[in-house]
């Protein structure tokens, strides 16, 4: 009896010792040197693995940051969800400048609500923008406008997008939006754009993507950009931030100073601002002054 115990203990003990040796040797021989800074930087990042930085998840970003720090400059890297705060922390950690990257936010470029771009046909298929987009032009008839099925709402990992039941359009919560770009990818019509938040959250943008001729665009939507150029004329005297291409105006966010003077001149109210735009001079009133 005692022999059995002895033998088993011996056999197992010898086997265990042998395996331990093998494991020790292999672990030593094939060990991967990981920079301890990578895991520390990963800790500092938000840890949501959204990929907005362009790297595969937060640890990917961390190794990129460590590599960049070794070459002495991390100012070109940015973590949009983490924002300025996170990047400054990381900069302090490395003793380098984090670079002055402006905070950004996702912006919807369509104003074709249920009321302003009324439905001309009735779609009763599955509620998916991607599917509706590949099926037909949309209930309003605008082939570029919002389809209102909320693919962006589903795609947003932060719950920052909600569909407004009255207008039918998605709304971005500036507080929650980290400008990760999930909505930009999810929208089959590319209606979202990542734009700078702007000083005091003042931003102005063209709320339309329709490139059709004015007469066609207006038939489907009351607030379509018709490419008339009045906004460009106004802006040309100030900062030349507006360009017009294919019947569509675009406000360059890097040049725009957020004065809002283009907002009231737009005859179709296609330009919107996050603040009360200045009242136009009474003489130059174009039909009805716009309120966002």
């Amino acid at each position: 009896m005692s022999q059995i115990i002895l033998y088993s203990v011996l056999t197992l003990g010898v086997a265990a010792a042998a395996f331990a040796t093998i494991l020790y040797v292999t672990a030593r021989k094939f060990s991967v040197e990981e920079d301890p800074r990578v895991s520390e930087v990963t800790e500092m990042l938000p840890g949501i693995n959204c990929g907005a930085c362009g790297f595969p998840g937060c640890s990917g970003m961390a190794s990129a940051l460590v590599d960049a720090a070794d070459s002495g400059d991390i100012s070109h890297l940015n973590c949009p969800p983490g924002g300025q705060e996170t990047m400054k922390n990381i900069g302090r950690y490395f003793g380098l400048d984090a670079g002055d990257i402006k905070p950004t936010v996702a912006v919807l470029r369509c104003g074709g609500s249920c009321e302003l771009a009324p439905a001309k046909s009735n779609y009763d298929g599955p509620k998916s923008c991607a599917l509706a987009h590949s099926t037909f032009a949309g209930e309003s008839g605008c082939p570029i406008g919002c389809l209102m099925h909320g693919d962006c709402e589903v795609a947003c990992p932060f719950g920052a997008i909600s569909m407004n039941p009255v207008t039918g359009l998605p709304e971005v919560d500036e507080e929650k939006c980290t400008s990760c770009g999930a909505c930009v990818t999810a929208c089959p019509r590319n209606l979202f754009e990542i734009r700078p938040v702007g000083r005091k959250s003042r931003r102005v943008w063209v709320n339309c993507r329709n490139t059709e001729p004015a007469i066609v665009a207006k038939r489907n939507c009351a607030v379509a950009c018709i490419g008339c150029g009045l906004c460009k004329k106004t802006c040309d005297n100030i900062v030349q931030a507006i360009t017009i291409e294919n019947n569509l105006a675009y406000i360059d966010p890097d040049k725009c100073i957020g004065c809002g003077k283009c907002v009231p001149v737009c005859p179709t109210n296609a330009i919107v601002a996050t603040f009360e735009p200045p009242k136009p001079k009474p003489k130059k009133t174009v039909k009805e002054p716009a309120a966002t």
Binding site: S121, T135, A137, G138, G141, P143, E212, V216
Partner: peptide, 10 residues
């Protein structure tokens, strides 16, 4: 010019 096709696209 462009005309609307069966799917509503021009």
């Amino acid at each position: 010019d462009t005309v609307v096709d069966a799917q509503g696209y021009r």
